[in-house]
């Protein structure tokens, strides 16, 4: 079990190798990155704020719920905070299990709940102006399909 909130980058290869074990048959690993310069979305940087203490406890709670639902060997959740540039890694969720379906499902479940429950906030820089990102209804919908 590993939940980390940090300003520094992370090495996906090293994190994946750290989850390999004789009991593990598959590791599902999601990496979220800063989306920047698409045609309609000129984000030049993003700053992430969080609620130290509550962030970690929420991520641990989400991981514990995933472990109740699926037979997981191990889980790693890493989320960065501070100022990040387009293309940089923000978040990694990795779930290791004996079989792939549990790993895929658990990684998706953890990401869906992280988006709606973990206390992080993004401010985007565009044309030299900073604005807070609004929460999306589609993220609530993604979470709610697990509770239907």
């Amino acid at each position: 079990m590993s939940v980390r909130v940090q300003t520094g980058d992370f090495d996906v290869g090293a994190e994946s190798r750290a989850l390999q074990a004789e009991t593990v048959g598959g590791i599902a690993l999601f990496v979220g990155t800063v989306r920047g310069l698409s045609s309609d979305d000129g984000v030049t940087a993003m700053t992430l704020e969080h609620f130290p203490g509550m962030t970690e406890s929420e991520l641990e709670r989400i991981e514990a719920e995933a472990r109740q639902r699926w037979p997981l060997e191990d889980v790693t959740i890493i989320h960065r905070v501070g100022r990040l540039l387009p293309g940089e890694q923000i978040v990694m969720v990795a779930a290791a299990s004996a079989h792939r379906q549990a790993a895929f499902d658990a990684a998706q479940f953890i990401m869906d709940f992280l988006k709606t429950d973990a206390p992080f906030w993004k401010a985007e820089e565009r044309d030299g102006k900073t604005s807070w990102v609004d929460a999306k209804d589609s993220d609530d919908a993604a979470r709610d399909r697990w509770t239907g």
């Binding site: 969080h50 509550m54 992280l114």
Partner: peptide
């Protein structure tokens, strides 16, 4: 007691 906007991490 903490007050905050809906979260936008990930």
């Amino acid at each position: 007691v903490a007050f905050f906007p809906p979260v936008t991490g990930g």
